[in-house]
Simulated scan of single mutants.
Amino acid sequence: MKVAILAANTGQGHISVMNSICSYLENNNIYVECFGDFYEQLMPSNKVLSDFYNLLQITSLETCRVYTQMSLLENKDKFDELYSYWYEPLNHFFRKYSCDVIVSTTPLINKYIIRYLKEVKSSRKFYIVVTDPFIPMYPGFAVQGADCYFCPNIETRALLETEGILPEKIIVSGYPLHKKFDAVRNDMLEFNKQYYLHSGKPTILINCGAQGSMDYLSIVKRIHVDFREKANAIVLCGNNSSLYAICKNKYPDFIILKYVDNVQDLLKISDLCITKAGANTFYECLYTDTPILVNGVKGFLYQEEGVIQFMEEYRVGKIFLDLEELNLKLNEMIEMETLNIMRGNIENLNIVNGSIKIAEVISQSGVRQKT
């Protein structure tokens, strides 16, 4: 069996989900090819759009939010015209890369691929992995015509059904995470020691996102001023070398890191995580029983707005909308009693790794496995 997993390089979430599913498929002896920048490589104009989106994530989340909302205003009457630009690139790609199963982790490509596969009478199976766990979700996931839809929770399942997706085609798999989240390290004590964390203080993990948003500078500064005596702090600067250099220079008593591929280990030694409402980091926290303090200072992207209702309903953390609220809510959350209550609430959610179920279904698609 040959499986192609397609993503878009908008942030890092869709690519992370792609890699997560791949990690379990390869365990099942399935031949997998991953295309993390499928959307961008298909047409140069797509790359321009993604690059602009990624730039806004680093420099201005407020503008990024407006940009995302504008992209939702696509005129449905223009679909035939837009598809005419997609047809040849899609045809070229699928002639070049043969596969039995196509898995999409991004909403940006689904309606075009579904129409293409129908027009060429392809026998390939097409699966959509919904990576938006909150309501509303980005519209491109609820597109009729796929063979199967994997979604992270019952709320997104209900939303797919209201959009006309047949219930028998929907599987509540859980949110897909990498197999390393299920691995057990035998050297966690030594791993912990390398960061010289004070054992008598809670540890705060500040995740600035894969792109490394400069908006976190004010947050790191406030925590350094008001909490450096009360807590340990680890700052993940992502791929933003400027953010890393500034934090490394100004806050030598904090642990400052660039983009890491072992965030699961850092979450396991942290008592809480400060992060934006992105689905990937959010579910990484839930899966490791790590309470979440969500950064809402610059607002939320369209597909993140539902985090407010989620936090109110399940009480797995708190949200701060300004730096004064950050102080107030962080003071509450570093109390061990509060942390334990939130950890219990997370455990009650029974979060599972969706990659396991997704890989299982794909593996049983009835096509030969590699030898």
Rank of each mutant, 00 (worst) to 15 (best):
S50V: 12
I341R: 14
V17K: 01
K258H: 05
I219Q: 10
Y259I: 01
L243F: 07
Q12T: 09
L82D: 12
N19S: 10
P291E: 07
N27R: 13
N192Y: 15
S50M: 15
P89N: 09
V263K: 02
G366K: 07
N348F: 01
Y195W: 15
H198N: 14
E161F: 03
N331L: 07
K179M: 11
F134E: 05
K276I: 04
F94M: 14
M336W: 04
P202F: 02
N9H: 09
S365N: 11
C151E: 08
I308F: 08
Y283F: 15
G354A: 13
A7T: 06
V297N: 06
C22K: 14
L293Q: 11
Y195M: 09
H224K: 12
S60F: 04
L266V: 04
I171F: 09
L267N: 12
V129I: 12
N350E: 13
K318Q: 13
Y53N: 14
M336I: 15
Y112N: 01
L286Y: 08
K118R: 12
E62H: 06
D132C: 09
E190W: 00
D182L: 07
Y31V: 05
Q41F: 03
E88W: 02
Y24I: 01
F126M: 12
A8D: 12
M43W: 06
S241W: 00
R124L: 05
V263C: 03
A233T: 13
Q303P: 01
W86Y: 15
N153R: 03
E190G: 00
N249I: 00
K250A: 12
D51C: 04
S365M: 08
F126E: 10
K78R: 09
D100W: 02
I356C: 09
L56F: 08
K169C: 04
V294K: 04
S173Y: 10
L108I: 00
Y24P: 01
Y251G: 00
T68M: 14
Y87T: 00
P89D: 07
E229C: 11
Y138Q: 08
M342S: 06
N331H: 07
L61C: 00
E81H: 09
K180F: 12
P176G: 12
N295Y: 09
R228L: 07
I58G: 03
V120E: 06
L90I: 04
L25G: 07
A8P: 02
L267W: 05
P152F: 05
E26V: 14
S45V: 11
R65L: 01
I30W: 02
K298H: 14
I15N: 04
E325N: 10
